[in-house]
């Protein structure tokens, strides 16, 4: 608990809040422009929002996770703080504190994001928000982002040079987006593709009438299991690399 509190102190004035606000602003502007163009499909409004928001997530959240992990990891490398820190706490405890810090920051951002979009949808006349679906969506985006954060934290702490971590985050953003165009088998092999696999809405396009319909769906149990597997793998590998690292 003390270690976790220290992580928040360490990240003061390190641009974490502007990064989070930037993410929220980008999502809000992007989706705002997109929704403003739609012909207010009131009954399907929430489905339209929950179908498109994960696609924006797939572009923005992998890099956001990379930036947050990098800000947290870089502070130790720049200050050559790890040698001193590891005389006071075990590397495992430090790793856990940093992970929980990232989990809390991501949870905060995604909760604010969901609240803001529910408000936006309500203002656009979509009616009463489907609160349970929004809760599930927030939870699922958080879990996928956390899995990616685990990967990024491993890289950011392992390498003092933040380039590999940022390049991995960027490639993830790119692969996550493109994986949405590929078959399920390919998506499952890419941890960044899980924003698409966790979609709560599916779309059907009728080529004859050229009409688009949205339906609620639930993520497959296999995908949820695989996501947990990816998370466990990244956490264990990242922790092992950090714990064994000579500081």
């Amino acid at each position: 608990m003390k270690n976790l509190k220290l992580e928040f102190f360490k990240c003061r004035r390190r641009g974490v809040l502007p990064v989070c606000l930037g993410l929220l602003a980008a999502q809000f502007v992007w989706m705002g422009v997109f929704l403003a163009r739609e012909e207010s499909p009131a009954p399907d409004g929430w489905k339209l929002l929950l179908y498109n928001l994960p696609l924006v997530d797939a572009i923005l959240l992998p890099l956001t996770a990379a930036v947050l992990a990098s800000r947290s990891g870089e502070t130790e490398h720049k200050g050559s703080a790890l040698k001193l820190l590891e005389t006071m706490a075990t590397p495992g405890q430090l790793y856990a504190a940093k992970f929980f810090w990232g989990a809390l920051v991501l949870a905060g951002v995604l909760l604010v994001r969901s609240a803001a979009f529910m408000l936006l949808g309500f203002e656009l006349g979509y009616g009463q928000p489907p609160f349970l679906r929004w809760a599930a969506f927030t939870l699922l985006s958080w879990v996928v982002s956390l899995v990616l954060y685990a990967l990024q934290q491993g890289l950011s702490l392992r390498f003092a040079n933040q380039a590999p971590a940022l390049i991995a985050g960027l490639s993830g953003s790119f692969l996550g987006l493109l994986s949405l165009l590929f078959p399920l088998g390919v998506q499952r092999c890419l941890p960044w593709g899980y924003y698409g696999l966790m979609l709560l809405v599916r779309m059907e396009w009728d080529p004859v009438t050229r009409a688009t319909s949205f339906f609620w769906r639930e993520p497959e149990a296999l995908d949820l299991g695989l996501l947990c597997l990816w998370g466990g793998l990244f956490l264990l590998a990242g922790r092992a690399l950090f714990v064994k690292k000579e500081v």
């Binding site: 641009g15 930037g22 572009i59 890099l63 930036v67 990098s70």
Partner: peptide, 16 residues
């Protein structure tokens, strides 16, 4: 900014 990651995030925002 003297930061590694923040300018990269700004590049993505700038691209959008």
């Amino acid at each position: 900014l003297r930061s590694f990651a923040v300018p990269v995030a700004l590049a993505l925002l700038g691209s959008i």
